[in-house]
Design a binder for these strands. Sequence first.
DNA 1: TTGGTTTTGGAATGTACATTCCATGAGCCC
DNA 2: GGGCTCATGGAATGTACATTCCAAAACCAA
Lengths: 272, 272
Amino acid sequence: MTTDATPQDYERLQSRLTELHATLPKRLRQCAEYVLRDPDRVAFDTVAQAAAAAEVQPSAMIRFSKLLGYSGFSEMQQVFRMRLSGIWPDYPTRLERLRAAGAESPEGLLAEFAEVSRLSLERLTARIAPETLRLAVDRLTGARLIHVVGLRRAYAVATYLAYALQRVGRPTVLHETGGALEQTALFNPGDAMLAISFQPYTGQTIALAETARAGGVAVVAITDSAVSPLAKHADVVLEVEEPDVGAFRSLSATFCLATTLAVATGARQAAG
Amino acid sequence: MTTDATPQDYERLQSRLTELHATLPKRLRQCAEYVLRDPDRVAFDTVAQAAAAAEVQPSAMIRFSKLLGYSGFSEMQQVFRMRLSGIWPDYPTRLERLRAAGAESPEGLLAEFAEVSRLSLERLTARIAPETLRLAVDRLTGARLIHVVGLRRAYAVATYLAYALQRVGRPTVLHETGGALEQTALFNPGDAMLAISFQPYTGQTIALAETARAGGVAVVAITDSAVSPLAKHADVVLEVEEPDVGAFRSLSATFCLATTLAVATGARQAAG
DNA sequence: TTGGTTTTGGAATGTACATTCCATGAGCCC
DNA sequence: GGGCTCATGGAATGTACATTCCAAAACCAA
């Protein structure tokens, strides 16, 4: 029956599951998806926890283990534990090892970007004053329409914010460059604007923020310095650090802040 | 009394123990020595196993844990588990901790997003195999034209990748949904596609990847699981973890990977 | 529909576990 | 050397756990 024996290591388990995945009944498939998605957690889970995470009954999780040939969940879990304990040195060691691989190599680059992003996230919470953040959320919550603008590098952030704010139920418009939307007529008192710009600051973004503010719009800026030209035209300034590796900058902290803004605005709206 | 609180991470636990070591009675010292010598094993041990390994009674191990301020062995063990996996305590505990910190407030949310993002970045380097990453860069470097596709939440990633790849000198086209660009005629052998999709997977993205591949295009996928429907149609699968806070997911790891891909492709191109 | 088969949920079970408690033992000051 | 405090071992306890089992539900083929 089991021409392949029960998988004794994670790699084999993984390939077995990818192969089986299509043929599995619903609940067992959910199990497969969970253990592949979060193998680290499985190593420590109790059946109940694993089952909850996979959104199945504990018994389904055990059935799943048995299907793969193990005597039960605990035996399958050994594979996940081995994977963790066997090869994994702690984070600093891993990082160093990667660095040694040379910054020129893709994996060295990845390590560097990851580290730099991690550090900027650590500092993010310290850098953003709670009152400032609240103020920003206030402005967005109160707004009838939220204008989002960001170009070049900041464009990705702008598209994300537009998407997230819309999903959260706030009327949002994303300003594209050169589009007809950039008409002063569109700005009304009671609106809010989220403007994002980093060094070297894009003139169009700043100009749009200035116009909006003149039209009575509350401007919330995400930028990299309190003295950035965008900050001058903003009611609330959220400052994020954007560390660079070579020519490119990490956007992690910015996205983290963006997500928070969207979710907090959504939550407030729902509550109020 | 305890000016330092109970150590919540391994580093602090370690320094606490080195400091305490000299003053400890014999059995408790044996405990300290064992957990410092073999922290990996402690993560999986039962009290009985840990006690045996330290050559003490189970009760001694628990006394030891309590001395450090934990409620018992299990609580101390969490620290060792976290170290190994980068995983935070289970979901209920985390939620509770959040509540205590005032998760409802914007600053609490920010802290949570930052933390979750930080952890997923830590695991990113471990999760992406160097060979896979190299393979992905190879495909992109060799391509005459790079197609980028991603919708909904992944759209921001797609816009960023299109921008970054263009800046780095690679001919890139961003596929917008419903646009005229989605013609099979546009795909030629020798092209590459970067497709990004996460749960719940967008059908259009997957369909486009399938079409592209049928047309001889090398498909590199960024997705959240090896069994994601997108993975089936990809030549290279880059798997990223997307931890969620409430309804929203952190994109930090994804953006980190995206930046790396762009820069590495640019660098290789410049060198070659 | 009907009968058979597979899949699922959830209560029941027995075991293994962390933790507690107390009696004994070792070290130490008077 | 007697009495005190701190350290230790190990049996006792209650809980949380993996696993089993069975009945209900869904699915499917005729």
